[in-house]
């Protein structure tokens, strides 16, 4: 855009230059026409050049006032606004970061609490399991002891019963032999025969 503007100004300038050069020449060539010509080209009028001098002074004063006082005031307001906005954004960003870290902490705490609770639950279950196991073992041991004792009692009762069975068998055999044969057989023969028969029967 700047390039096209520069080229267009060159084109306009090439047209304007002869005109600008011609204007003073025309004015000078026709001094009589000055009164009816453009007042802007009436350089005999001291006011025409006077406005240039005044214009220079006024422009300089305006430039100094603008550059030293008025424009810095505007800039100060714009800068302070930019800073205010930046500060506010910083504060907002800071607050957001704090909130984020608080949320993170909360999640962390929640995770930790969950892990602790899970560990406690696991421990309680494990304890209960161990206790149950121990109780079962104790119970089994006691039952085993009782069974053992009962078996011992049964065995002793059996052996006691078996011990008296021999005596009864001996007596019975003696009585049977006496009643059948009418003779008395010596006790040691009866005992030996019964013993033999019992052994043959696996008793």
């Amino acid at each position: 855009m700047a390039r096209s503007a520069a080229s267009s100004i060159r084109r306009v300038a090439s047209l304007a230059t002869p005109l600008a050069l011609a204007l003073p020449v025309m004015v000078m060539a026709a001094p009589g026409a000055r009164a009816v010509g453009m007042p802007q080209l009436d350089f005999a009028n001291p006011l025409v050049i006077g406005q240039v001098v005044w214009g220079a002074v006024i422009f300089l004063v305006l430039y100094l006032l603008l550059s030293r006082s008025a424009l810095p005031k505007v800039e100060a307001v714009l800068t302070s606004r930019r800073q205010t906005i930046d500060n506010d954004l910083d504060i907002a960003r800071h607050a957001k970061a704090e909130a984020d870290s608080a949320v993170d902490e909360l999640h962390q705490a929640r995770r930790t609490a969950m892990a602790e609770a899970q560990a406690n639950v696991d421990k309680v279950i494990e304890d209960a399991r161990l206790a149950a196991l121990r109780q079962t073992q104790e119970m089994n041991a006691r039952l085993a002891t009782e069974i053992h004792e009962a078996e011992a009692r049964v065995a002793s009762a059996r052996s006691a019963a078996l011990g008296s069975l021999r005596q009864i068998a001996d007596d019975t055999a003696q009585v049977l032999v006496r009643q059948i044969t009418g003779t008395s057989v010596p006790a040691d023969v009866v005992a030996r025969t019964v013993d033999h028969a019992a052994t043959a029967r696996g008793l």
């Binding site: 006011l47 006077g50 406005q51 001098v53 006024i58 006032l65």
Partner: peptide
Amino acid sequence: RFSQSPLMMIVASVAVLAFL
């Protein structure tokens, strides 16, 4: 050599400064 032209320059300058 003070014509209405410098007067309007002053008015213009004052207007610009007053605006700001």
